[in-house]
Design a protein around this nucleic acid. Structure first.
Lengths: 346, 346
DNA sequence: CCGTCAAATGTAAGAGCTTACATTGCACCA
DNA sequence: TGGTGCAATGTAAGCTCTTACATTTGACGG
């Protein structure tokens, strides 16, 4: 079983190499690395010296196979391109780090099939638990997760109707509150820019929130002007231009997230429209961007960092086989900034 | 932890389980999955049915151990919090995806010790190659990489003086060109907001570029007002405020990246300063943000996507044992937008 | 009708680690 | 001085795959 020495410079050193050099058994080396207290100080020093000298790093695959756990969590987010998930994920990672857990991140491009692939990849890599976004995914994905008993948690959502564990906020109610505020200012011609709703429960919920607010005021929700596109600044700008061409022209554009809203603001500037003088614009998520653009965005503030940190804690609890408690509903608030005002002539 | 071995319904199905169900040997199952052409159609169908029925997914660790390669690349970026690396990384991932390679991402928080840990983690996980940012890292990190013969590539830099393979641009020359443009407009009191230079060659190079431009014009580079902080909007704003308190008050603030510049713009607005009327602000990187803020940022445009894509290609070539060619120098340009103008009274 | 050869499949040896269990050695006490 | 018990260490059995090599099967030419 000893490896050939002729390629010793290329091949990674193994436990056995370290053991040989430190003149102990492989078990002792393993213990030195994983449960130092079981090893005498003298031996420990000898082993560490050998590790150092050889530049040894344990082979992860082998370790996983033998130990049957990885101390690795996975997260699959829809996109890394914009900052929607950045802050939450950062907090998630920090909390995991404090607990000695490594985070692997993959992105699904808002594509359920791709997400399923990524879940499979992460599971195969031995992720002990997964953080996912929202509840919308393929049956096969849920199947895999349940079958393998992989603990997982849906973040960025709180849907009382779902039996699945989640941490997040009520996207629908939050958007409804914002829409009610807009309506309360006297706006009668609303428009929405939403992400494709078919496979995105957050987008769907947010959109529905607008309709709910309109109906609550006795308005016809069917009168809402809608543009549906993938999240991006460019798309937000394009959608805004099209909305401004409609008649009656909307006096308030409610965007599915801040990225859209930033695009809308850009388009407005290009078109020479004043915000909120000619038209109001609102966002959702309160990412950093929201405070930077001019005018600053009125948007739904989401407790990103808190969500990330608590998600980590819940998942760790779950992994330990303990009860993480029920799904967590976080509170959102409306960040009132300059982009929202009364309709023109009001 | 989660999976106990005596619980058949919980344990992940193994190759052996699939083999038993399909009434073939484990070798045949493995071949069906990895080299389907070696297996007859009938057998293949039987095996696939078993795979399906059992929800089998190969154990990555075991596969790596046996096959000694992972088709996984790793990337370690300094931060995920802002979008500096997002676009390049996305392109990198897309190109890898086209080649059947999975990307694992980790972030180092601009901390070399942490980066070293992350390198170790990724290498242990069997990353076939690594994408790193810049050339500044610990000796130990380079040691590990060289020892294990892990192909790696430094991106976001092109330092002719470094023998190490890289793809990127000349940060120094790019910033120098921008600074010369600023000076050409008549500015005489420059200020800089830079990231900590000690362990960040890009920040250092950019900063040095400003000094070079000043000297080239016969100015005293020592007169440059400097603020050094970690990249963040908040810090950019704070640094800007402090710079505006200096006398003589700078008429142009050159920021180490667009995030700082966005912060500076915010602070200027709060202070009632007009940009570029009272003070000009420039950025670096030309991330999406640059076009969104008001006024839009004059900044150094970087070909993010091209860099990401070509980085992937080079790394793949390197992994195949072929010659990736020399380090690649990409061209930057100056994106002239509204935030830069002549100094007041000029 | 047999030998040959290729295609299809099987057998079994690792790959590097963890850990249950076994062994050793030594201090301490009766 | 022999027995006890514990701390330190060793032994070796897996963990789940891939693949070199071995075997089986059947078509086909002579």
């Amino acid at each position: 079983m000893p490896r050939q020495r002729d390629d010793a410079t290329t091949a990674a050193p193994t436990l056995e190499d370290v053991a040989a050099r430190a003149r102990v058994s492989t078990a002792t080396v393993s213990r030195t690395l994983n449960s130092p207290t079981l090893v005498s100080a003298a031996t420990r020093a000898r082993v560490m010296a050998a590790v150092e000298a050889l530049g040894y790093a344990p082979n992860f695959g082998a370790r996983v196979m033998a130990a049957r756990r990885t101390n690795t969590f996975g997260a699959i987010i829809p996109t890394m391109e914009n900052a929607i998930f950045a802050r939450g994920l950062q907090a998630f990672q920090e909390e995991l780090g404090r607990n000695g857990i490594t985070l692997l991140v993959a992105s699904s491009s808002y594509d359920p099939a791709l997400e399923e692939d990524q879940i499979r990849a992460l599971v195969a890599r031995g992720a002990d638990a997964l953080l996912l976004i929202g509840h919308d995914r393929t049956e096969a994905a849920y199947d895999l997760l349940d079958r393998r008993r992989i603990p997982y948690l849906a973040a960025w959502v709180h849907d009382p109707a779902s039996p699945r564990l989640s941490i997040g906020f009520d996207n629908r109610a939050a958007m409804q509150a914002l829409a009610e505020k807009v309506l309360g200012l006297g706006h009668r011609h609303l428009a929405a820019i939403t992400a494709p709703r078919a496979q995105n429960d957050r987008a769907r919920a947010r959109f529905d929130g607008i309709g709910a607010a309109m109906r609550a005021r006795g308005q016809d929700a069917g009168a809402l002007a809608v543009e549906e596109m993938a999240y991006s600044i460019e798309n937000g700008a394009a959608a805004f231009r099209r909305l401004m061409a409609r008649r009656p022209r909307p006096t308030a554009v409610l965007c599915g997230n801040d990225v859209f809203a930033a695009g809308a603001l850009m388009a407005a500037r290009e078109m020479g429209l004043s915000v909120p003088g000619d038209v109001s614009v609102t966002g959702f998520d309160d990412i950093e961007l929201a405070g930077i653009v001019t005018p600053a965005l009125t948007t739904v503030h989401v407790p990103h960092r808190q969500m990330g940190r608590r998600a980590a804690q819940m998942l760790i609890t779950l992994c330990a086989g303990k009860d993480p408690g029920p799904s967590v509903k976080l509170e959102t608030s409306i960040a009132c900034r300059a982009s929202l005002g009364p309709p023109p002539g009001a």
